[in-house]
């Protein structure tokens, strides 16, 4: 007998006491199965608190900063200038660019050499690059989280991991949700997802949080109004 059949057989024997008739059909899509929905009491909140759109964006900025992300606010017209300034202040000579990043975002960053995100780059090559600029899929105000889904303006997962400086552009309020449940609604599980809440950190020394281990040690989030 294969181990698969062995384990499944053990599971079925172990559950001999569980009534068979409460078995719901296999859920095909999230939240679509009425019997599974009945099995779980979902009276918890879809979001916490009652906020205007503007307040939700403010909360995002506040929570991002609370976990040591550096937050900047601007509008579409000001964005290229802000990105150019952040790269210049950092002294970045090279910047990674996802294939679908709007070209105008880097229009004023004259000094930094653009390195396109490419499957051919080795991890060692990525390690030589100073900064990366991306968009995001969604941002969560209650937790101060940005989520990347590998979309054209975000690129492969590794480009926001190996360089030490990540500039992430969030379009507000369009890309902002209040809560974790709302974020999951917007995301596609078939895509590779990376949830980022502040720069890399650890609690491993005496259970106290210290920023800056393996991921980018500087995370700058630019909230761009007017989409």
């Amino acid at each position: 007998m294969s181990s698969r059949d062995l384990i499944l057989g053990r599971v079925r024997r172990a559950l001999a006491d569980v009534p068979k008739d409460d078995t719901p059909p296999v859920p095909e899509r999230p939240g679509r199965d009425p019997q599974y929905e009945q099995a779980v009491d979902r009276t918890y909140l879809r979001e916490h608190g009652d906020r205007t759109t503007e307040q939700t964006v403010d909360l995002l900025a506040e929570n991002l900063a609370d976990y040591r992300a550096i937050v900047h606010r601007t509008d579409n017209g000001g964005l290229p200038g802000v990105i150019a300034r952040l790269l210049a202040e950092r002294g970045s000579r090279t910047v990674l660019v996802p294939s679908g990043l709007p070209p105008e975002w880097l229009a004023e960053a004259a000094d930094a050499t653009r390195v396109p995100d490419s499957a051919a780059s080795t991890p060692h090559e990525l390690d030589e690059i100073d900064s990366v600029v991306t968009g995001c899929a969604v941002a969560i105000a209650e937790t101060g989280t940005i989520v990347l889904d590998g979309g054209p303006d975000q690129g492969r997962r590794r480009i926001t991991l190996v360089p030490d400086h990540h500039i992430c552009v969030v379009r507000v309020p369009g890309q902002v949700v209040s809560s974790v449940p709302q974020a999951l609604d917007r995301l596609d599980p078939a895509r590779p997802l990376t949830w980022i809440s502040g720069p890399s950190a650890t609690s491993d020394i005496e259970l106290d949080r210290v920023e800056g281990v393996h991921g980018p040690r500087t995370l700058e989030v630019v909230l761009v109004a007017g989409d």
Partner: peptide, 21 residues
């Protein structure tokens, strides 16, 4: 676990993705 609103990184993957990971 760490008393954070959210931990710094959460990765989610479904099988393999062409030319990524």
């Amino acid at each position: 676990s760490t008393a954070e609103r959210m931990n710094p990184y959460t990765s989610m993957w479904t099988g393999t993705t062409d030319e990524d990971g």
